[in-house]
Design a protein around this nucleic acid. Structure first.
Lengths: 363, 363
DNA sequence: GTGAAAGCGCTAACAA
DNA sequence: TTGTTAGCGCTTTCAC
């Protein structure tokens, strides 16, 4: 079950390695050729730099013949306008930063799809950053953001990273604002409603010994973890005692879910259902459980969270709390647009995504 | 099997919609506040703009007290340095453009992971563009690239888009250069070797009636399609007659593979194996075949191409030709670095990724 | 420790 | 149709 293992031995770039002979020397641009400027093109073609600008930008007020001559020369000289010089003078080039935890978790490509689409509609560029949910990395990326983009749309776990991001002067939107103040722009995913619906479904099906496979990243982050708290709360409300060892931390991946499930089973073979932090963990857990001889859902039922497409691929298909991830990305960009448009943070309309229980065969 | 359906009814942002009342008006920044400049901060604090610059950039030659005063004022005034002005003066801020076909195809997140990592090591930003492999979109994106980035790393299908991209003055690397001239920088994925190994494996297992589920996007693109040609060639070499209707075009997705499989079966229930353009199509096909009562691999075997992680999730696990997608992304960035460093296009070392046959249970 | 001057490469506005 | 002038907002000299 070594999924997406970067050191996978079955794949090589052998001939490439040969071809390199001595290897690349990253970071050391040996021979950086100096930029060709508009003035040089102007000089070479004997016109003013304004005329070159007209040719390059396809303006109308220019002799077609001159334009072609200039274009050819520019091409031949290797001229390309500097985006910095351009951006300085035209104030309408917008770039937003999209910060995600992990490209390899299918949750984020879907969010990204929504962000890219919404951004494209507005003619914005999107710079992508990956944090792995590491605190250090999150802080670093937030710093980058201030320097490099006009607005940030971010999935951030750590409190200090969020604090830093929202304290600055950069329009900033959280992809999961959790229980934060209304004045912090961002989308709220109603984990409370979702988790409650999911757990009550399990309880309604007669389950009493329900384990939870939690995301271990929350252990180190000083972030409120709604899913775990909700689990405790709902179980309490229904008067169902919870053994604290039913909660197992898992790395946020399929392998992580599998490992956590194995740990859980070695201590508590008697659990009848598993409420997982998300689909990735649920899928790994379910796969491992079956490999260890359990029948799903008869011996153990599995409930995921996220509604990833791949949940439909596994056997049996995963019951889950589906989040409209694409819409999440779109809304975030819409909020960024409002902020960029001058709206103050507390005027941004409240945005809530409601997870929906999708009952398939695993629970 | 409606995977990743954007119009999925099970997910809403109802309260948000309520909250919006009248809706967002995208593209119409109502109230765009003018940029606060360094001069304004200087004026407000009674120092020169130079000193403000020192404070902002953490230079040493400045009175700590002055610095703090300036920083506070800047923060209060909502000052943020313009990246354009900065970039104009410091020539070391590099942004590359990553062009992919579809974020939702797990192939690309893996490539993206490699690109992001390699770019981060160099302190580069990565702007991401999604084309859906539409010709129009590809051409558009290539244009953007010229304006917006310092180098391009792209997965492009259409010949004219590639021609345009490589003709310009932008350092440009193809993520799949196919059979293009050595002087076109890019990574070559050895589909020929891969497909041959895969098909000969099937043939070796006794299969004679081997169908192919092809990517329909290649039908419209004037691109060479190695996988299909190889299929024909290898079958020919082994003296195995091919019914042209064994080749079914499929949309590049799980649903697409499923639909194509259904079409194939309605005409040719007698095929014993399927060679799919990629894993997504193979998975959809296999799922549908099983849903229609076929046993895999007994009645029909399936061979994918790509080596996606999700191939391990399906039942039975997918036999596939694995490509090291992450490495692919990394190599492309390394090539871009060489180009950016001044190396000429024909000096870039040859890079080949060798697909590896991973035999699992589906074939 | 601080300021003044120069200029990065481009486009908008105005003249010619 | 073309050229000239004036910045865009910042950092890098180089004085003080």
């Amino acid at each position: 079950m070594a999924l997406a293992d970067p050191s996978h031995p079955t794949c090589t770039a052998a001939r490439y390695a040969e071809g390199v002979q001595g290897g690349y020397s990253p970071n050391v641009p040996t021979n950086r050729k100096p930029r060709v400027t508009i003035d040089q093109v102007a000089q070479a073609t004997g016109v003013s730099r304004q005329t070159v600008s007209r040719a390059i930008n396809n303006k109308t007020e220019i002799d077609p013949e001159t334009r072609q001559r200039i274009l050819d020369a520019a091409q031949a000289m290797g001229y390309r306008p500097s985006r910095f010089a351009r951006g300085l003078v035209r104030q309408d080039l917008i770039t937003i930063g999209l910060v995600i935890a992990d490209v390899l978790n299918p949750f984020f490509p879907e969010v990204t799809a929504g962000v890219l689409e919404a951004a494209e509609r507005r003619g914005w560029q999107v710079v992508v950053y990956n944090t792995g949910s590491e605190r250090r990395k999150e802080l670093e990326v937030v710093d980058m953001l201030f320097d490099q983009v006009d607005a940030g749309v971010a999935f951030l776990l750590h409190h200090d990273a969020i604090a830093k991001a929202t304290a600055g002067n950069l329009p900033f939107v959280l992809l999961d604002k959790g229980g934060r103040a209304p004045a912090v722009p961002g989308v709220r995913i109603d984990f409370e409603g979702g988790a409650r619906r999911g757990l009550e479904y399990l309880i309604g099906r007669g389950h009493r010994r329900i384990a939870m496979l939690d995301d271990e990243a929350y252990l180190s982050a000083e972030a409120p973890n709604t899913r775990r708290e909700l689990y405790l709360k709902v179980m309490g409300e229904h008067g169902i005692p919870v053994d604290i060892n039913w909660i197992q931390p898992a790395h946020n991946s399929i392998d992580g879910g599998a490992a956590a499930m194995e740990r859980l089973l070695s201590a508590h073979r008697d659990v009848t259902a598993v409420f997982a932090y998300n689909d990735l963990i649920a899928i790994g857990a379910q796969l491992r459980a079956r490999a260890l001889g359990l029948r799903v859902p008869e011996d153990c039922a599995f409930l995921g969270f996220d509604g990833l497409s791949i949940g439909e691929l596994v056997e049996p298909p995963l019951t889950t709390l589906h989040i409209d991830k694409r819409r999440l990305g779109e809304i975030a960009v819409e909020q960024a647009a409002l902020l960029l448009g001058g709206m103050s943070e507390d005027e941004i309309p409240e945005a809530v995504i409601e997870p929906q229980l999708i009952v398939r065969a695993s629970a």
